[in-house]
């Protein structure tokens, strides 16, 4: 780590002015688990690290009509929260699947949404890749077994967050604090593909922070789950994951939200699969069709074609499980 200055903020007011417009100068620290990794590898060399953990209004879960989660809520609190486990199952499962017990006690939900990709070329100092202003994506022709099968070009990172697909499937909205005060941004608009911005995976401005995450109350008949497939069960990132939220009325799917993790530079909405399910009964045939649709536009690289099969099967698994839930 470079020798930075440390600032422990206790209020939101003034924070955007302090953060300013240079992302490399001032960085926000929440749980710190991703940030310290980037600092230790000197991928980030900021002048100042701003710890926001002491800002009280960023903490706490409120469950009323919908869910209102402070951005600094730690992942273990979300995974264990009785109401979240019951009514927002996909989120509790996603939070509980992250890293390990220790890191879930440290990492925050806001930080999880903002974490940087795990691409080993991005994380390795010796590779000056596109994301580091270099001229090539090492993964494109390198070792890409964990890389993107959707939306990759020109940079084939995958978004590592587990909570993001879950929150997106739940229709979450972020409250963001910036120089002009608070604004709301639907999570679906938060992430951006490399083709839109190579450097950053989301649209948070340099002088903004996420303050709260709001999830609408589920409609009656909603059931949800998160399936995460890891190469190694004891602590690993998703090779592929599925966040599925279905609202079922009578026997039919009234609304389907399926978001994939670990397969694209952003949480990847499986629109074709959702369309296949819309208004249908969850028959075996419909499930097969939806699963196939989920990966119909996949574009695998040399070493990750298996992720296409895997993802199709995970979607199928998710739908079968939701059917019998």
């Amino acid at each position: 780590m470079v020798n930075f200055e440390y600032f422990e903020a206790t209020s939101l007011e003034g924070l955007p002015q302090l953060l300013g417009n240079n992302r490399n100068e001032n960085v926000v620290m929440a749980g710190g688990t991703d940030l310290l990794d980037l600092l230790k590898e000197r991928i980030l060399q900021p002048k100042r690290v701003i710890n926001i953990k002491k800002i009280q209004e960023l903490h706490g879960i409120q469950n009323g009509r919908g869910l209102d989660i402070g951005a600094l809520t730690i992942l273990s609190d979300i995974a264990k929260h009785p109401a979240i486990r019951k009514s927002y199952t996909v989120l509790a499962q996603a939070a509980g699947s992250i890293a390990n017990a220790q890191l879930r006690n440290m990492g925050t939900i806001g930080g999880n949404l903002c974490q940087r990709p795990r691409c080993w070329y991005f994380r390795g100092r010796e590779y000056v890749c596109l994301k580091k202003d270099g001229s090539k994506c090492y993964a494109a022709e390198g070792i890409n077994k964990y890389h993107a099968i959707f939306g990759g070009s020109p940079c084939f990172i995958v978004h590592p967050s587990d909570s993001a697909p879950a929150l997106m499937a739940l229709g979450a909205t972020l409250e963001i604090y910036g120089p002009n005060g608070r604004r709301a941004m639907p999570l679906k608009d938060f992430f951006q593909l490399p083709e839109d911005n190579l450097m950053f995976e989301n649209r948070l401005a340099a002088n903004e922070i996420i303050t709260r995450i709001r999830i609408p109350e589920p409609e009656p008949g909603t059931r949800s789950l998160y399936i995460k497939f890891k190469e190694k069960d004891s602590m690993d990132f998703a090779i592929s994951s599925v966040a599925a939220v279905l609202q079922i009325q009578g026997n039919r799917v009234r609304k389907a939200d399926i978001v994939l993790g670990g397969v694209a530079p952003i949480p990847w909405r499986a629109k074709a699969a959702e369309a296949e399910l819309q208004g249908k009964e969850l028959s075996d045939a419909v499930i097969e069709k939806a699963a196939a649709a989920a990966v119909s536009d996949a574009e695998p690289l040399d070493h990750n074609a298996y992720k296409v099969m895997l993802t199709r099967n995970l979607v199928k698994d998710a739908l079968l499980r939701l059917r019998s839930a």
Partner: peptide
């Protein structure tokens, strides 16, 4: 400080913070 600027009711806490930055503590070196 934000407090001195705002307790007099001159300007809002937010406006004061815009000039002074957020409340908190700095450690360097």
């Amino acid at each position: 400080s934000t407090a001195t600027l705002t307790t007099g009711g001159l300007i809002s806490k937010e406006a004061a913070a815009r000039i002074l930055g957020p409340e908190g503590e700095t450690i360097s070196g």
